[in-house]
Amino acid sequence: MAIDPALVGTAFPATTLTVDAGRLRFFAKAIGETNAVYTDLDAAQAAGYPDLPVPPTFLFAIELESPDSFGFLARAGVDLRFVLHGEQSFTYHSTAVAGDVLTATPRITDVYSKKGGALEFLVKETAITRADGSAVADLKSVIVVRNPGAGQ
């Protein structure tokens, strides 16, 4: 089933998260980060941060706090058995730190296909802002959907 290009422009409910220092330490350990600024408050402050900074890819996890973080795919008629994570990119505007209240606001910005419809692509962009509205980062995710019935 082809992904409807009319989805372009669709916005999804925002997800808000208060950044927790313990969670940042856990995330840093999970990704193998060894720089002490991500796990030790004294090291972070010595480096000029007011608190532990958010590791670079942590922001992707904010949307996963949503009760139905992949529901938009089901609503688009996508069979999750054929989904691949194709690409992820981040454009940073400022550094978030423990204690910040961050909001992720996602929307679909493109839908296209390749190989005669055998591969469909859904592009989702997410703005991450602080409670005061200041920009933290813009995330871009490309989801690839294999369509076994097309292009044959």
Rank of each mutant, 00 (worst) to 15 (best):
A135W: 02
I128V: 14
A96C: 11
I62A: 07
A118N: 05
A47G: 08
F12Q: 02
G117M: 02
A14Y: 11
H85E: 10
A36T: 06
A118V: 00
A98M: 10
A98H: 07
A2K: 13
P5C: 11
Y92W: 14
A46K: 03
L64D: 10
T105D: 09
G133S: 13
G22N: 14
N35K: 09
I3N: 06
L52G: 02
A137T: 01
A21H: 08
T15F: 11
V54A: 04
E63M: 14
L119P: 08
A131I: 04
D132W: 06
A21L: 09
S69E: 08
G32L: 07
A135Y: 03
A127C: 02
G9K: 04
G117S: 01
V101K: 12
L122F: 11
A28N: 01
L24V: 03
S141G: 13
V144R: 00
V101A: 14
T95A: 14
L59E: 02
A6P: 04
G22W: 04
T34C: 00
T129I: 14
T126C: 08
H85W: 13
A11V: 09
G48R: 09
P56C: 00
T126N: 07
G48M: 13
G9F: 05
L52H: 09
A96N: 07
G77E: 10
L7S: 03
R25T: 03
D42F: 01
Y38P: 04
R75A: 15
S94I: 00
D138F: 02
L84Y: 12
R107Q: 12
R23P: 03
G22R: 07
F121Y: 14
R130T: 07
G22Q: 11
P67V: 14
A47F: 05
S113P: 00
R130F: 13
V78I: 08
A150P: 01
V97K: 04
S94Y: 01
T109R: 04
G22V: 04
R23Y: 10
V136E: 02
R23A: 13
G32D: 06
M1W: 08
A104C: 11
S141E: 14
A44C: 12
D132Q: 05
L59S: 06
F121G: 04
T129K: 09
N147W: 04
P5I: 09
I31M: 14
P13K: 10
D51M: 00
I31F: 13
I3P: 06
Q152K: 15
F90D: 06
A61K: 08
F27T: 06
V78Y: 10
R130V: 07
E33M: 00
P56G: 00
D138T: 12
D110H: 07
L41H: 02
H93Q: 09
E63K: 08
A131D: 15
H93F: 15
V144F: 02
P50R: 15
G151K: 03
A76T: 05
S94R: 07
K114I: 00
A43C: 05
